[in-house]
Write a protein that binds this DNA or RNA. Structure first.
Lengths: 224, 224
DNA sequence: GTCTATAATCAGATAGAC
DNA sequence: GTCTATCTGATTATAGAC
């Protein structure tokens, strides 16, 4: 509960070069670090999947460990708590989102926003969007104190917020709506229960579901 | 886990009239039954409030009992399980919803649909909408096996479904959209996280939030 | 670092007196 | 029916051997 550091090798190499006993083998250290990262990535991926499938409360650490094929105690060597594990999963998708935003071709702001929402919904339908049922307090606190998470959230919000304001300035998005409300509405598509309901109905394919919800989100339900 | 019966006095009087010991006192039985109902209503109301506030997983039976001011064991005399308790809360709001639907003035289908969505969102903002984070399996099973719940859900869906089809026939709602998708989209406003986010922002009052989300739901984000 | 085994806690459900 | 006290199982987290 004390350390909220997320064990992701997003920073530079370790700074410890001081006084190696006999054989300084930086290559082997790098290899071990690499192995460690692979292992941790596997853990985070399993957590992410289960988080998307069952949510934070119903996901158990035992399940995650079993899914990876390691003992639970080993998992706790990598992550200090269940909250930190979930936070790592959230940071991972946020990083993916930021990468997607950064690489998006610079077309029109409205098209870019639609592309982002489409991407989020595809991720959710693929079972790779770790949704956090928003109510849990301990998890919220952990996330708020997590720098990597907050930074990613801020970066994504800044980019999308700029597009929203541009689209409003061009008259493409309703100027009556506060930009923050538009942003929330777009974010909410990442955990829209309509997607799951439509998928359960088995009448529509994933692609159709995405386009349908995208249409209702931007164009509304009424005829145009 | 075995009995999914919800202790609501929605059916007729008990059928047991056989062999009363000495004094048959139906008046007193009625009074006791009434007291029982009041107590159960208090329990359900507390559960409903906590369910809206924290969700099913984070709500504990201890809390509900403490909120009502009774012992947990007493609560279990009324409801056989936590799932059944939550189901009773859901049935209660569904009944309220059906009553609202039945008493709605017969104006235009689109106005009626908007009125329903407005009502649902007001309920959520008032903290009286017991949202079920949809993922829990045991709860889903309990609800699916609950006749009162399924009946209420069916009745509400039939009424709203009819309005949706009428509105589509009149060209008021996009005919391209499957009616079921429209229904899901409306239902989803009852647990829309955007409402909570906007409320947390403290920039808008409840009434403004409702009208804003209502607007994005029916008219979409783009300019018209 | 990984494991087995276990501690510690919490929450759903029940026993049994009154 | 209501209570206190308890059982039971599940779950987070850790100790300690290797």
């Amino acid at each position: 509960m004390s350390s909220n550091r997320i064990p992701r090798a997003s920073s530079r190499q370790p700074l410890t070069v001081a006084s190696p006993p006999v054989q300084a083998t930086p290559a082997k250290v790098s290899f071990k670090t690499q192995m460690l990262k692979v292992r941790e990535d596997a853990i985070v991926q399993a957590a992410s999947r289960l988080l998307a499938e069952k949510g934070f409360d119903l996901m158990t650490v035992d399940e995650v460990a079993a899914d990876v094929g390691i003992a639970k105690a080993s998992l706790y060597k990598h992550f200090p708590s269940k909250e930190a594990l979930a936070a790592a999963a959230m940071v991972k998708v946020l990083d993916r989102a930021c990468a997607f935003l950064a690489n998006l071709p610079d077309t029109h702001p409205l098209d870019q926003l639609k592309a982002v929402v489409r991407w989020m919904m595809q991720l959710q339908l693929a079972g790779e969007m770790p949704s956090l049922p928003s109510q849990n307090s301990s998890l919220r606190a952990t996330l708020m104190n997590n720098k990597a998470y907050m930074d990613g959230l801020m970066e994504a919000s800044d980019r999308m917020g700029a597009w929203i304001e541009q689209a409003q300035a061009q008259g493409l998005i309703n100027q009556q709506l506060p930009a923050i409300a538009v942003l929330y509405t777009l974010y909410a598509r990442a955990c829209d229960p309509v997607l799951d309901f439509l998928k359960m109905g088995e009448q529509l394919g994933d692609e159709q579901i995405v386009e349908l919800v995208l249409s209702t989100c931007f164009d509304g339900l009424v005829s145009r």
